[in-house]
């Protein structure tokens, strides 16, 4: 019995080892430093998002990153989840003009964005995005926290990991910036954050580190808005299963007792 479980544990460990080696290799080729782990309100089994932080992060995205990056999977209506009131979201949405239905003459129209619209994209298409960014494509950020190893840690590290001058011996490409954490260290995105670049309504000091932290938290929420519900349900399901399994074990022992 105990041996059996030991072996199951070994199998599980091996399974885990597989996926770790798998993840590490995809970045192994680059010289990038692994991002240092940060404290996040949402890490761990019981972790939840800090609503105030998500709202600050959305402000950073809206005022800074949205100039170049889309977040196409996020709709205005989703933002009630970060604790904004419906009226506040409607007001923010109304600041953006989006394509409306054609008018009675078939001419294209524009209208203010509404709750059911996606967050607007800065560029009409990838070509326009590239041509405005020196040939580089700013990726959509809706899933960035899931599509990069390290998630929030990586985003925070990337935004704070710029060096003003590349280390000696490194030749930089035209318009490239040296970043400790980016694969191959040369990134086309100029350092986007500046000290006090945004003004937080809740009075938090908008240092570069703080903004990076907040926007990384916001990206994590955007990538997995279901996270809190998932963990809450997971705890209940696992507790239920643990109790049920303990009972099933007792049943099994009883049923087998006349054989042993």
């Amino acid at each position: 019995m105990i041996r059996t479980f030991k072996r199951i544990a070994v199998a599980a460990a091996l399974l885990a080892a597989f996926s770790v080696s798998d993840v590490s290799t995809s970045r192994a080729a680059s010289k990038a430093t692994p991002p240092p782990p940060q404290d996040w309100s949402f890490s761990g089994v019981f972790g939840t998002f800090d609503r105030a932080q998500l709202q600050r992060g959305y402000l950073v995205y809206r005022e800074v990153c949205a100039a170049c990056h889309s977040m196409k999977q996020v709709y205005f209506r989703h933002l009630v989840d970060i604790g904004l009131s419906e009226n506040a979201i409607k007001a923010i949405a109304a600041e953006f003009e989006v394509a409306g239905e054609p008018d009675e003459d078939g001419e294209p129209t524009e209208r203010p964005a509404r709750l059911f619209d996606r967050l607007p994209s800065p560029y009409a298409n990838d070509n326009e995005a590239r041509s405005a960014n020196n040939g580089a494509l700013p990726p959509d950020l809706s899933l960035i926290a899931k599509s990069r190893v390290g998630g929030a840690d990586y985003i925070h590290a990337l935004l704070t990991g710029y060096l003003e001058k590349a280390p000696a011996g490194v030749t930089m490409g035209e318009g490239m910036n040296y970043n400790t954490y980016f694969a191959a260290n040369q990134i086309a995105m100029a350092p986007p954050l500046a000290e006090d670049g945004v003004e937080y309504e809740d009075g938090t000091k908008a240092s570069v580190d703080q903004q990076a932290r907040d926007v990384a938290a916001f990206m994590t929420w955007a990538a997995e808005p279901e996270m809190e519900e998932r963990k809450r349900m997971g705890i209940k399901v696992l507790l239920f299963l643990i109790i049920l399994t303990a009972m099933l074990y007792a049943v099994k022992r009883r049923v087998w007792s006349d054989l042993h």
Binding site: L241, L244, T245, L248, Y249, V251, K252, V255, W256
Partner: peptide, 8 residues
């Protein structure tokens, strides 16, 4: 009984 426990 044994399979049910294993399933748990």
């Amino acid at each position: 009984a044994k399979d049910a426990f294993g399933l748990g």
